[in-house]
């Protein structure tokens, strides 16, 4: 743990925008203790913003208080405010600081004054929405978020947030619409499609869910080319294969009502469904097969449960 490596780590966190708040606070305290702010030069300001956000995230309102001459959050913010007066970024940082201790009404009033001064301040607007949401005022939050997205259409984050708010209120159709915006804005991102698949599944639109799951599988999983060992599905790929399996099962065993789709998606033919069922079973088992590279190890954890589940779902058909 020396100074240069800590600084490097902090810089890479900044570049990647990763939310490793605990690590950032730890590294930041080290930097403060060893170097102080004066030696950082122009990097100081980015560092202070990063440290203030991370400390707020971890709830350490008095970070580094006892280490140096009282560089508490408030001191961080005051330094930043003195350097960059009227900067919207510092304003929003102040707001986040207020969120930690003040009541939500006070904070919303503060953000409202920011928005009155500059009605296109998207950062303040988003913070206001998140305060509204966390204070339980879902209705206003949805209204504000819709207005925001109407203005800033390309904000994928916003669409995902609106989608998850709708999902939490069981409004799956609206959630799917939000996700479809996110999907056209970032068609290459399989995670959004996976989320849409799961939302469609929750909305009991099984044929649509199956199509989305298959899209994820198509994008993420590659069959082995000749000569290589079959790959082992992981993470979102495995999740999607589970989804395929569930949907295929549901459609094969279903009464006609289950294959009805709100989005008028036609389910695959029964022959294809059986093949899909077979294929997904294969892939799920492949994920739990003992790895050839680490010989001598037993089958991976949970394999028995999975096999039992697969057998059960097959026997009910």
């Amino acid at each position: 743990m020396d100074l240069t490596s800590a600084l490097q780590r902090l810089a890479s966190y900044r570049a990647k925008q990763s939310r490793a708040s605990a690590d950032i606070v730890k590294d930041g305290e080290l930097v403060l203790r060893k170097a102080g702010l004066t030696k950082l030069g122009d990097e100081e300001w980015a560092f202070l913003e990063q440290l203030a956000l991370a400390a707020l995230d971890t709830g350490k309102l008095d970070v580094a208080d006892d280490i140096t001459d009282g560089y508490a959050i408030q001191a961080c913010l005051e330094r930043l405010a003195a350097k960059f007066p009227e900067s919207p970024r510092v304003d929003v940082l102040q707001g986040i600081r207020m969120e930690a201790t003040e009541s939500s009404e006070t904070v919303i009033r503060y953000y409202n004054t920011l928005l009155e001064a500059d009605e296109s301040n998207i950062a303040a607007w988003k913070r206001k929405i998140s305060v509204l949401k966390s204070s339980g005022d879902i209705k206003t939050a949805v209204q504000e978020l819709s207005t925001l997205l109407d203005t800033f259409y390309t904000d994928v984050e916003g669409w995902l947030e609106l989608g998850s708010i709708y999902s939490s209120c069981n409004q799956y159709t609206s959630a799917l619409q939000c996700l479809s915006h996110a999907m056209i804005l970032a068609p290459q991102n399989a995670f959004y499609i996976l989320e849409a698949a799961e939302t469609a599944y929750s909305a009991a639109d099984i044929p649509l869910a199956l199509k989305f799951y298959l899209r994820v599988v198509e994008m993420l999983d590659e069959p082995p080319t000749s000569g290589t060992t079959p790959s082992r599905p992981e993470g979102p790929t495995l999740r999607a294969w589970y989804g395929v399996k569930l949907c295929a099962r549901d459609l094969l065993t279903s009464t006609p009502t289950a294959s009805q789709s709100e989005s008028q998606t036609t389910p695959p033919s029964e022959k294809h469904l059986r093949l899909l069922d077979e294929l997904s079973t294969e892939r799920i088992l492949a994920a739990y097969s003992p790895s050839s590279s680490k010989a001598g190890e037993g089958p991976p954890l949970g394999r028995e449960t999975v096999v039992k589940w697969l057998e059960n779902t097959s026997s009910t058909s």
Binding site: P187, L208, L210, K211, F212, L214, R215, V217, E218, P223, T265, P268, H272, L275, L276, E278, L279
Partner: peptide, 17 residues
């Protein structure tokens, strides 16, 4: 729609069809 006939594409990719 990218989801059109996706099941056939996936099955062909895994040489099930």
């Amino acid at each position: 729609w990218s989801g059109k006939d996706v099941e056939i594409r996936v099955l062909q990719k895994w040489s099930k069809l």
